[in-house]
């Protein structure tokens, strides 16, 4: 497995896309935190959660990066070269997902702590201290969410095999579908409660917003469950299909 991890690491970092993603994700999230901090009014001191407003920017960049990590392999048929070198397709997919997820987690941690640091430097008061467990979760938890999002994106990319399609699905789903279902009279809010990215957001919310049904860590576990299910589907597909 270490060999495969090394292989996938080389593959990922010898193209431009992860570098772009790192720059875009960090630039957008930390930049947005800076914007928020620069414009805040003196009367209302910023809290830890205010430093994380831009975290969704990084999330969408991670989704795109992770999907591209696998769809470009199909696009350029390097997936065939990959399976030629390593016929154990499950192992390849596990290794690729692991590498992408680790990168996503690192991006998440840097983005979150970077945003927090920038906010603190520009407009930090005593409220900006990471004091409680919830504060830790809101900042350090970003990496976890990014990593799970990356797993979801790799799985969707593997299932769809096409950059345009995978990216459309991965962006339209969390940004639009999960919001619009709320509007369905009656059942809408309940469906909304069980949307994966809604749960991701709940995990990263301050305590007063981490509403039912399952609490922040339950939400994270739920997100992980969705990621695992999609990943399993991708595993089945990749082993069944012709490369």
């Amino acid at each position: 497995m270490t060999t495969l991890l090394a292989t996938e690491r080389i593959k990922l970092f010898t193209t431009r896309s992860p570098w772009w993603s790192i720059v875009a994700a960090l630039g957008l999230t930390i930049g947005f935190a800076g914007l928020v901090a620069l414009n805040h009014s003196e009367g209302r001191p910023l809290q830890v959660e205010h430093s994380q407003f831009g975290i969704q920017f990084g999330l969408v960049v991670v989704l795109v990066m992770a999907a591209l990590a696998v769809t470009t392999e199909y696009r350029f048929s390097t997936i065939r070269a990959t399976f030629q070198a390593v016929p154990n397709r499950s192992a390849v997919l596990v290794a690729k997902t692991a590498v992408v997820a680790v990168l996503a987690a690192v991006i998440g941690e840097i983005a979150a702590f970077g945003s927090w640091t920038v906010t603190r430097v520009i407009a930090g008061g005593p409220e900006m201290a990471i004091a409680t467990g919830a504060d830790v979760r809101m900042v350090a938890g970003v990496g976890l969410v990014y990593a799970l999002a990356a797993v979801i994106a790799v799985a969707v990319g593997t299932l769809v095999r096409q950059s345009a399609g995978a990216i459309s699905i991965l962006l339209i789903w969390p940004l639009l579908v999960e919001n619009l279902v709320q509007l369905i009279p009656g059942a809408g809010p309940h469906i909304h409660d069980w949307m994966p990215f809604v749960n991701a957001e709940r995990f990263l919310n301050p305590p007063e917003f981490t509403t039912p049904p399952i609490g922040p860590w339950g939400s994270l576990a739920y997100l992980a469950g969705v990621a695992a299910a999609l990943f399993a589907a991708a595993m089945v597909a990749v082993n069944r299909r012709d490369a």
Partner: peptide
């Protein structure tokens, strides 16, 4: 590029325009 154009468009329409309102005062 398909991927780039789609990502840019969707992220802008669905995310950027909404998130800017989170910026205090000017948002």
């Amino acid at each position: 590029h398909s991927a780039g154009a789609i990502a840019l468009l969707l992220v802008y329409v669905q995310l950027v325009e909404n998130l800017v309102s989170l910026i205090p005062r000017i948002g």
